[in-house]
Amino acid sequence: MNALHRLFTPAQPRMPLGGLVLSTVAVVVAVALLSGLSELSGHPFFMASLGATCVLLFILPAAPLSQPLNIVGGYLLSTTVAVVLFSFLPSEWWSLALATGAAAMLMTGLRILHPPAATMPMLVTTGGESWHYLLEPVFVGALVVAVLGILYRTVVGDRIWGR
């Protein structure tokens, strides 16, 4: 019973209500801004994995995985790996697995791990994307989110966790 109980007990600490509201508003604002910019400009500045990035960034802003270098570097590296590999390999289940593993290994080895960026091989292969995708939405979207995170952390600091 004890082992089973541990499986279903949240390991994450409870966030104070004020922090929960503030971080939720930040996620909503960031996603709305990127989506709105995309709609107004006619250029894609948003991709689904940036939603997960916003959750990490605005709920766990001090986490190593939420730092600007990890966000921008992780996305650029993972997308580059995917575009390069899919330039030479067919878009198959095994090449997708290889690209995702290579991206994770390189992000970790270069100390710029950002888990949502590991979705880039999937987005590149399913969308048939090429080098243009690296600039927009990847670089622009990741940079906008990272800058918003810097502003958020400057204003809010660690107060969302009641510290």
Rank of each mutant, 00 (worst) to 15 (best):
V138A: 01
M47V: 15
H114V: 00
M1F: 13
R159I: 07
F8M: 07
L151S: 03
V145E: 06
V138I: 14
L96G: 01
T108G: 12
V28S: 09
S49F: 09
L98T: 03
T154K: 15
G73Q: 02
A82H: 05
L148D: 05
L22F: 09
M47R: 10
S95F: 07
G101K: 08
V72M: 04
S38E: 04
L98P: 00
A48I: 11
N70P: 06
T79P: 05
P121Y: 03
L65M: 14
S66M: 04
A32K: 10
I160K: 00
A32G: 12
F46W: 14
M120L: 14
L134Q: 03
W161P: 00
P68G: 03
S95W: 07
G73F: 05
M15Y: 09
T119H: 12
G51W: 11
I71D: 01
A11W: 15
N2P: 11
V138K: 01
L65R: 12
Y152D: 02
S23L: 02
A97Y: 09
P115A: 00
V147H: 05
I112C: 05
R153Y: 14
V31I: 15
R153V: 04
L135S: 09
G149K: 00
L148Q: 07
V144S: 00
L89P: 06
L7W: 15
Q67P: 06
G73S: 03
S66N: 02
H5P: 06
S130W: 11
V124W: 02
T100N: 07
G128Y: 07
L96D: 04
V144Q: 00
H43E: 14
L65C: 08
L22T: 14
P116G: 01
V29P: 04
P68D: 06
V140F: 13
L22C: 10
L96Y: 11
A32Y: 11
A104G: 10
G162N: 09
R6V: 11
M120D: 14
F45G: 00
A52G: 12
A3E: 15
P68Q: 02
F58W: 05
E92F: 11
L17C: 03
A117S: 08
Y152G: 00
L143T: 14
T100H: 10
V155I: 12
G73V: 08
T126R: 08
L60F: 15
P121G: 01
P44R: 13
Y133T: 05
A146S: 06
M122G: 08
